[in-house]
Computed example of a mutant assay.
Amino acid sequence: MPLSPLACVIVDDNEINRLTLEHLVALDPDLELAASLSGGVEALNYFRQGGHADLLLLDIEMPHLSGLDLPQLLPEPAPAIIMVTSHRDFAVTAFDMQAVDYLVKPVDVTRFRQAVARVVQRNEAPSEAPQPTAPDSDLFVKVGSRVLRINFDEVLYIEALSTYSVLVTKTQKHIVYLTLKSLAERLPFAHFIRVHRSYIVNTNLVDSVEDNLLKLGKHEVPVGKSYQDTFYKSLRGL
């Protein structure tokens, strides 16, 4: 629990949704409601007039100024953001914008508490000297009609499949409705490297390399000729 409650601002154009979130905030000892606002424009004015928030509970689809546009206009230091929406389709975009979490309405109390705990944990991290940190290994990815949280530390490689891509772990495969090129541009992990026009590999999980063939557990992935120099330079060795 933080030394003092986090100042929380709710932004949602639906009054029932705001009342629901206000109730959840009131139940959480880590939070204190600073403002409950009916839209993005009102929120922008609140912050520009000196209003403060440690946490922003932000709806996405709102008239005049959406929850995807508002964060780009906030003055620094910007609050932590938890997106709260009726739609799952924005999850990837939300996490590209560095949202701490993404909640789908109707919001479950336990899930809400988990999201707040992530914000509390981030705020309590040591801050004496800024240290480079590895990005969170979890990303939300649209798989079919679902948006799944996937731990990319467990992804061995990603394979192109026509206009889709396949995320391959030791035990599962997930078909993602993005091209390999789009995935390569979005992945925030330096250890995922394109080694072939049809493959991206997690270099942390490469067991061995033989004749330009990568061994990742029981899987094998070829290294394309035009990718060999970049790939071998990325390997750590003696």
Rank of each mutant, 00 (worst) to 15 (best):
M1L: 12
P2G: 14
L3I: 12
S4C: 11
C8P: 05
L19I: 02
T20K: 14
T20Y: 00
H23N: 09
H23T: 05
L27T: 06
S38Y: 08
V41Q: 03
E42G: 08
L44H: 02
N45E: 15
F47A: 06
R48N: 12
G51E: 01
A53E: 10
D54S: 03
D54Y: 06
H64W: 13
H64A: 11
L65Y: 07
S66M: 05
P71F: 05
I81T: 12
I81M: 03
M83T: 04
R88I: 15
R88M: 07
D89E: 13
D89K: 14
F90A: 11
A91R: 04
V92M: 07
D96M: 12
L103E: 06
L103V: 03
L103C: 03
V107I: 14
Q114Y: 09
V116E: 00
Q121F: 00
R122A: 09
N123K: 08
E124N: 01
Q131P: 06
P132K: 02
T133P: 02
D138T: 06
L139A: 01
S145W: 13
L148R: 10
T163R: 11
T171F: 14
T179P: 06
S182D: 10
R186A: 04
L187C: 01
F189C: 07
F189L: 01
F192N: 03
I193L: 15
R197T: 11
Y199S: 00
I200L: 13
E210F: 13
D211W: 02
L213I: 12
L213G: 13
H219I: 00
V221I: 02
V221Q: 05
P222N: 02
F231Q: 01
F231M: 04
K233F: 08
